[in-house]
């Protein structure tokens, strides 16, 4: 019987999943070949109250959070990502600016995954289109990549995906977090043809 496979997969993800990109609180914690990536994901309209159902004992950040699946090479995100595909993901809380440690080199957002329902016999995932390049480069210490705005309909079909420049607001948050005088280079995400 394979019914509990959803639960097994989720437990495996919670227990064995490789770490996400770590949030950063101090630039001095960055290695010489590392950069802090600053950005945001927005879902329009936002999740309604009760639309996401996380039940039971769940380890991990799932609430109002999309997992941006990253890789150094652009490739299609599999329909059922393997545990290894979660390595280096960005756990982006909708509407909140993320500051995550990354390698100072180009990388790609392959797509996003929102766990809409966890618990019971199955899990419900929503897939967000990807194919965006994060153009960090050697020598960078901080890169602003923009706000990835997903506009959806009631069936979770995405009507419009845009990269919005909110540099001013993000820069203010960046300065408040890491101190004034720190440079934040603007390099907005670009959608790349696969």
């Amino acid at each position: 019987m394979r019914a509990p496979a959803a639960l097994v997969a989720l437990l495996a993800l919670a227990a064995c999943a490789p770490a996400p990109r770590a949030p950063l609180t101090s630039l001095s914690a960055l290695g010489s070949d590392e950069v802090v990536v600053v950005g945001k994901v927005e879902l329009v309209p936002a999740l309604r109250k009760g639309e996401q159902k996380i039940r039971g004992m769940v380890v991990g950040n799932f609430e109002n959070t999309v997992y941006l699946m990253m890789d150094e090479k652009l490739r299609p995100l599999p329909q059922d990502p393997r545990i290894a595909d979660y390595a280096g993901r960005i756990e982006a809380r909708f509407g909140s600016t993320f500051f995550v440690r990354s390698k100072a080199a180009p990388s790609y957002i392959l797509g996003g995954i929102l766990f809409l329902e966890i618990g019971g016999q199955s899990q419900e995932k929503i897939y967000f289109p990807g194919g965006f390049q994060v153009a960090a480069k050697p020598g960078d210490r901080a890169v602003y990549v923009g706000t990835l705005r997903y506009q959806r309909d009631e069936f979770f079909e995405f009507q419009r995906i845009t990269v919005v420049d909110e540099y001013k607001e993000a820069s203010a948050e960046f300065q408040a977090r890491f101190g004034s005088g720190q440079a934040l280079r603007k390099a907005l995400m670009v959608r790349v043809k696969q």
């Binding site: 809409l116 329902e117 016999q121 199955s122 419900e124 995932k125 929503i126 897939y127 309909d153 009631e154 069936f155 979770f156 079909e157």
Partner: peptide, 15 residues
């Protein structure tokens, strides 16, 4: 058996 169709997609949907 229970056959669960995903939440995402409007191809079996109606407005």
């Amino acid at each position: 058996h229970q056959y669960n169709l995903g939440r995402q997609g409007g191809d079996t949907g109606v407005r």
